[in-house]
């Protein structure tokens, strides 16, 4: 079954602008007729420049915003139906960019327990879920610590554990590594990959880091509310010029392969990793 299915998903809003001359209103088309299907158990990445609509798309999956037109089904639940909102939010959890904005308690385990407590899960089961979730993200030793002394990467893994304790089928991550250093980014990406491969949780990752998107099964590019590209990372990133046109980037090795091809060197255009690049160069010899 599909984890997320969007059909003609459209979202419009009225933006009010305060100026010296008073208030002005402007209609903004944030999402324009999007058709996206995310299979259960897959890992997809959504790219797009700031203001492209990708976060608006993410918020639809959690029913934080409802479509103006069109429909989005999450785990088969139509987000337009008010009474399904809790089923939807239990199916798809969200992790945001700033870890400090999503921590609610003063002790790590209490923070993780917050979600299941609100679902009315019995205490014994909560204990079990909290321990399991912290073990899954590699944070068991911090169970009774205070979150304010954790690193950014640890806080984000804690936020992921908090979502895990609600037993979701899908996790939507909106730029979860934007505020982290390279170590923190690596910790979070490894956690995302492991949860996807081992626990089969569908991962929807919104990111500006092309190397992160390169790890996904499928990549979607959104530009000014339109879905403009869709394919495997190799298909997407080998379109260097198109990516730059949409204000995006490609991994350094892909760009070098592109430049070498321009100079007549016969090297594959879909190189994404250091290993692929080194292999391709060795084969040239």
């Amino acid at each position: 079954m599909d984890m997320v299915k969007a059909e003609g998903l459209t979202y419009e809003y009225i933006k009010t602008i305060e100026t010296d001359h008073g208030t002005e209103e402007e209609k903004v088309l944030a999402l324009n007729h999007l058709d996206i299907t995310v299979e259960k158990g897959s890992f997809i990445a959504v790219l797009g420049h700031n203001g492209s609509g990708k976060s608006t798309f993410a918020k639809h999956i959690n029913a934080l915003v409802k479509p103006t037109k069109g429909t989005i089904w999450v785990n088969g639940f139509d987000t337009n139906q008010e009474e399904l909102v809790w089923d939807i939010r239990q199916s798809a959890g969200m992790v945001f960019q700033n870890p400090d904005n999503q921590l609610v308690a003063t002790v790590v385990e209490e923070d993780i327990a917050f979600g299941p407590e609100n679902l009315g899960v019995p205490p014994k089961e909560i204990r079990k879920r909290v321990d399991e979730a912290l073990a899954t993200v590699g944070m068991s030793e911090y169970t009774t610590h205070s979150p304010n002394r954790l690193s950014g990467g640890q806080k984000q893994r804690m936020a992921i554990a908090g979502v895990l304790a609600m037993k979701p089928d899908c996790i939507v991550l909106d730029e979860p590594t934007a505020m982290l250093d390279p170590v923190g980014r690596k910790e979070v990406m490894q956690t995302i990959l492991r949860l996807n491969k081992e626990e089969g949780i569908t991962m929807i990752l919104i990111t500006h880091y092309m190397d992160e998107a390169a790890m996904a099964d499928d990549v979607y590019v959104i530009d000014d509310g339109n879905l403009v590209m869709h394919g495997t990372p190799k298909e997407i990133f080998s379109e260097v010029e198109q990516m730059k046109h949409y204000g995006l980037d490609v991994p350094q090795v892909t760009e070098v392969a592109y430049e070498l091809r321009k100079q007549g060197i016969d090297i594959p255009k879909d190189i994404l990793t250091v290993e692929e690049m080194v292999g391709a160069i060795c084969r040239l010899k």
Binding site: P182, V183, Q252, V253, V256, V274, E275, M277, I281
Partner: peptide, 20 residues
């Protein structure tokens, strides 16, 4: 030190290690 060099630096480190 928990840092990373730019991606392309690794390609050259590996090519060097292979004797290029």
């Amino acid at each position: 030190m928990g840092l990373a060099a730019p991606q392309i630096s690794y390609v050259f480190a590996q090519l060097k290690a292979k004797g290029y």
